[in-house]
Amino acid sequence: MTSPAYSSASQWYREGGQASHVRTMKSPGGILDLLEIEGQAGDRSRPAVPDITLYQDVHGGCRIRGDLGGGRFGLTTKKGGIVLAAPNFATTTIADTSHRVRCLAFPMAQWESVLDEATSGRFSSDSSYVYGRVFDCPNIRSALRNLWALCDEQGAPSGLLARAAGCEILAELCRLCGAPLGPTKGGLAPWAERRCLELMRARLSDDVSLDELAAEAQLSPFHFARMFKQSLGVPPRVYLTRLRLERACDLLETTDLPVTEIAFEVGYSSNQVLARVFTKHRRMSPSDYRRAVRDPVRQISMSAKGPALATFEVQQ
């Protein structure tokens, strides 16, 4: 393998020869690099970067050939198909058709210790047989879809959301690379669950990190994320959205604070972001919700048309 020519995949796609093909780029604090790339047929080779990088074909039917670190290959992708590129390897990729791909890069400086701990040192980024293969992994597809949906709703995801989503995806990559994780022995201890939820509620307006929550539970971030889901039924990122919406509903019902101020109070960057999240999960805008809960006649009318105002679901 060659020495890295760029510090990250994000730097290459910002500054390299293919920068004009980048349509979307979101990088939450260097935890994950999220990009969408669109281009015509041609050479899409890339210099070495110290990231494990996933590429997902958005439309399918792209004919590509080259070497992503696991030897020469040639294939036609399917919609949603995922291929993996090795870190610290100058990839060769020739696209014979136009294409639109989503790229998710894990900077190894952020994730290597997590991977080592999660697999008791069994994970190796040199597992060359996985690079250049097409993975049909429903769990990774679902996690990527949810991560992009969060980006569409909220812009660059918060550190907690990015870290938690990365842990979900890496758990599947470990399995695919032959270093499966051991079974989770149980959920969070009652004291740990209580303290973590208290911290999340107290820090709704901040970007509380997965590492902080894990430290509160005296666990590693990777194992905390898995045990949290076992205890609460959903990943930390989903539970955080649930808490934010519950608090927003409470403020809309009981205060006259402007929607913009409520958005900041529950951790969203603007009233537009709150409105997108709120409308997706409550099927109405924050302002409509406030009017409905304060107008008994309208509340009865709207309850008859859909889910009860007091309940909601946040998709996983």
Rank of each mutant, 00 (worst) to 15 (best):
M1Y: 14
T2R: 14
Y6Q: 03
S7G: 12
S10A: 13
E15K: 12
T24A: 13
T24V: 13
M25V: 07
P28H: 01
G30M: 04
D33A: 09
E38G: 15
A41N: 03
G42N: 08
R46A: 11
A48R: 08
P50M: 08
Q56E: 14
V58H: 06
I64E: 11
D67M: 11
G71R: 05
G71E: 08
R72P: 11
R72K: 05
G74R: 13
L75G: 14
L75K: 15
T76S: 10
P87V: 02
F89A: 08
T92I: 10
A95W: 02
H99T: 06
R100E: 12
L104V: 13
A105D: 03
F106Q: 05
P107D: 02
S113H: 05
L115N: 03
D116V: 06
S127P: 01
Y131H: 08
G132E: 13
P138W: 14
R141T: 11
L147R: 00
A149E: 09
C151D: 14
Q154E: 15
L161I: 06
L161E: 09
A162C: 15
R163L: 04
A164V: 01
G166W: 01
I169R: 02
L170Y: 03
E172A: 02
E172R: 00
C177M: 13
C177D: 06
L181S: 01
P183Q: 05
G187M: 01
A189R: 04
P190F: 05
W191K: 15
A192L: 04
R195E: 09
R195M: 07
R195I: 11
L197M: 14
R201W: 05
A202Y: 10
R203V: 12
R203F: 13
L204I: 10
S209L: 06
L213K: 02
Q218P: 05
L219V: 09
S220D: 11
S220V: 09
A225V: 04
R226E: 11
K229Q: 13
S231A: 11
S231M: 07
L232A: 07
G233N: 06
P235F: 03
T241V: 15
C249V: 07
L252R: 01
E253G: 02
T254G: 01
E261F: 01
E261Q: 03
A263T: 00
N271P: 00
N271V: 02
A275M: 02
A275L: 01
K280C: 03
R283T: 04
S285F: 05
D288P: 06
Y289M: 06
R291H: 08
R294G: 08
R298W: 12
S303H: 13
P307W: 06
T311M: 13
